[in-house]
Design a protein around this nucleic acid. Sequence first.
DNA 1: CTGAAAGCGCTTACAG
DNA 2: CTGAAAGCGCTTACAG
Lengths: 338, 338
Amino acid sequence: MAKTRNRATGLPTLAEVAERAGVSPITASRALRSVPTVDPDLVDRVRQAARSLGYVPNPAARTLASARSRTVVVLIPALSNHLFIEMFEAIETVLRARGFEPLLGHYQYDALEEERLIRTFLTYQPCGLLLTGFDQTPAATRLLTDCGLPRVHMMELSEETEIPSVGFSQDEAGTAVAWHLISRGRRRFAFLGAQLDRRVLQRRDGFQRALLEAGMQPAVEFLSPAPSSIALGCQQFRSLRRDYPDIDAIFFCNDDLAFGASFEAARMGVPVPRQIAFVGFNDLPGANELVPRLTSVRTPRAEIGRVAARRLLALLDGETLSPPALDIGFELMPRQSS
Amino acid sequence: MAKTRNRATGLPTLAEVAERAGVSPITASRALRSVPTVDPDLVDRVRQAARSLGYVPNPAARTLASARSRTVVVLIPALSNHLFIEMFEAIETVLRARGFEPLLGHYQYDALEEERLIRTFLTYQPCGLLLTGFDQTPAATRLLTDCGLPRVHMMELSEETEIPSVGFSQDEAGTAVAWHLISRGRRRFAFLGAQLDRRVLQRRDGFQRALLEAGMQPAVEFLSPAPSSIALGCQQFRSLRRDYPDIDAIFFCNDDLAFGASFEAARMGVPVPRQIAFVGFNDLPGANELVPRLTSVRTPRAEIGRVAARRLLALLDGETLSPPALDIGFELMPRQSS
DNA sequence: CTGAAAGCGCTTACAG
DNA sequence: CTGAAAGCGCTTACAG
């Protein structure tokens, strides 16, 4: 009888549940984990006992005993981008519904910090990982390979087709924007980029290649390694107007730059889209309300998170993913600004 | 010799570190935790051994053995509000520097979900909690009291002075906005609110009280339980103009509502601030770039997170906090919109 | 289908 | 200042 309660929290333990249900702790453990070999009647009794005691398994004990937790490491480049928050919330919903807990890490787009996080989080003995893109350091990639844990990469599509991924072609998105602007009669292009992670550069590449193939002049580029922000958009737009007053179309790597540019254009009296067309990226909240309403590319981040989480769970169930790289596309949202 | 390696991860264990340093596992454990009674030479030897093996402690084993983790539960109402992200990042920085890990939870402003999170997260045997505001359910409050863990509440100030808190007076912030608008000659006021959590209502109350005391008519209120957003700001502003075309000043409970209203005002041709003044709240990114630049109240969320984390660490070190409720104020940022 | 034994990798509490 | 013993609350692997 003595030590059936958790000493720190005073919570009931598995031993107490087992006692009340009149079975051994192992059977109680199996019943609660839905191990199929247990007699249905006993499962009921154990579940009943657990409920009446308000039993919650001790995750530390579980992890230590099984050398595996119900934890899924989720790594995103930054918390400050609404994009990743929406992706994470979708992941969380799917994982929770199946009894898994996300362990969230972020690394300010710094691959070395990401590597450090992977190293630390592996000590939590997670059952899998969800990673953003393919920017990992070689050392991080080695850690990931060595631990042998299932993982799914999000946002970008894997090129070596064995690695599971869910996202869309950043390059094609850039191409789609180029076509859209060309079809609207625009001829002198600019690309305004921030952060300069792989995905931003892929969009830029797709944009430039499409312009080239259409026989256009290459787009002028204003690139800043700083995080994208409304304030940076203001700044870049002023620089652009000063240096290239004849540009008639801008593709922004992220909507917040376009927000800033719109504000600045209004202040400078530059009419959008009459003199210059704007296309943003991600279709963030407010794009549809901005003056003028912003043409943007809607990226399916919630869907990416949902599907990535489901794919990881499928891997944990021993399934094989086909195709490994799942392209779920994007949608151009034409509005007033272009 | 046999089982010195972690079976799942292949990582070295404390036993292996101890062996290499030529001490017992307990001494190795103490050395790594900086227990002061250990001979400095041994500490060096153990640290050396740990480093050369790339040893990282197993958190599950630690937690199980000590019935206490280095985890701090951090609960915020929502991830989608940039305010709380900035607060969380500050918390994270302070905790990490002292070897603690934040365990982040969010509950979409739903006190029942918050209670569920508290219940679940307590099984992780955290060493303390950082909570947002004082909206907890009675059951949650009981859980918190019963577990006896140190905690600090953020954003709001505790009224029963024993509970540690860090924030500012939401009520006074509302009052400050009222005074500001009155001093600019405004006479017909509106308060536009969303979410309607305690803090929003406290701001509203402070605003209304100040108007009353100044002999003004009470502010017209447009309140929506929906999360605050740019789109909602557009909507509320249109409703307001339709129902109360003579209002000459609006206090928005959050900047994004003011953003939306600014867009809508531009579309409707309503001149801001000439015909109507806008004051936002939180001074979110973009407030200073909006057209016209938005008057707002800068809330010190990063500082609140930093101080709250430091106070919690102080409690863990056995210190007493004085005063329990720490008011670190706010700052009105007057700009073009008022 | 069920259970007794052993053990996960640490730390606590007690000796010395 | 150091260590041998015991144990944290579970699950694994082996019997039956």
